[in-house]
């Protein structure tokens, strides 16, 4: 609990840095209409994919700071030597990361849906996939961040490690939105994403804790 309070306070004080992935997200998405033309039909077709790809990329940008400061200033060492359980602490940190750098993206998403001419059912489907899928990004991402935190040049490597792993999520999420655009059911896709989320919620904290221990060597 103390970690939750501390990390939220920290995030508030570093809000300028938190804004950056968000701006990146909006920028990337506004590039597409400029690149492929403002035809509403085309935009609607590529819209869900664009939003998801942009969300994945900007979450990668934000992920790096998840353990970086704590590793560099030694807070992580002290955390490991304390009575707090490391997997629980990792889970709290991931939660704070999601609240502070992913949730704003989701709140912004109606605006972007407007940019890309998504229809209303498509938007609702997109929102549901984002709500279920982005925690998965944070959880799995945190494992790789834990592993690369000791390397000072982890940024590109992080993308290299994580993007292939995120492909199934991307496929299921965009196909859900596509089904919605055709007025079809998309519960199956949501169920799969939900299952992946629960699975990673159960295992990822331990993997993250292990990764952080490895980074201490």
């Amino acid at each position: 609990m103390a970690i939750l309070k501390r990390d939220l306070a920290l995030a508030y004080r570093q809000r300028a840095e938190l804004m950056q992935p968000m701006l990146f997200f909006i920028l990337v998405i506004s590039l597409f209409p400029l690149a492929v033309g403002p035809e509403p039909k085309t935009l609607q077709l590529i819209g869900p994919g664009v939003i998801w790809v942009a969300a994945i990329l900007s979450s990668l940008l934000g992920l790096e700071r998840l353990f970086r400061d704590d590793f560099q200033d030694g807070s992580l060492e002290q955390l490991m030597l304390s009575s707090t359980s490391l997997p629980a602490a990792a889970l709290v940190k991931v939660l704070v990361h999601w609240l502070t750098s992913i949730l704003p993206l989701i709140i912004l998403s109606p605006l972007l849906a407007l940019f890309l001419h998504l229809s209303e059912p498509m938007y609702w489907a997109l929102l549901k996939t984002l709500l279920l899928g982005t925690p998965l990004l944070s959880l799995i991402g945190a494992i790789a961040v834990g592993l690369t935190v000791g390397l000072n040049r982890g940024g590109v490597l992080l993308a290299l490690l994580l993007l292939p792993v995120f492909i199934p999520l991307l496929i299921f999420a965009t196909s859900a939105v596509e089904s919605a655009s055709m007025q079809l059911q998309y519960t199956a896709q949501l169920a799969i994403i939900g299952a992946m989320f629960l699975f990673s919620l159960a295992l990822a904290p331990f993997a993250i804790a292990y990764a952080l221990r490895v980074s201490q060597t």
Partner: peptide
């Protein structure tokens, strides 16, 4: 334990 890294957050 008191190591090289202080374990003090700068912010």
């Amino acid at each position: 334990y008191f190591g090289h890294k202080l374990g003090i957050n700068q912010t």
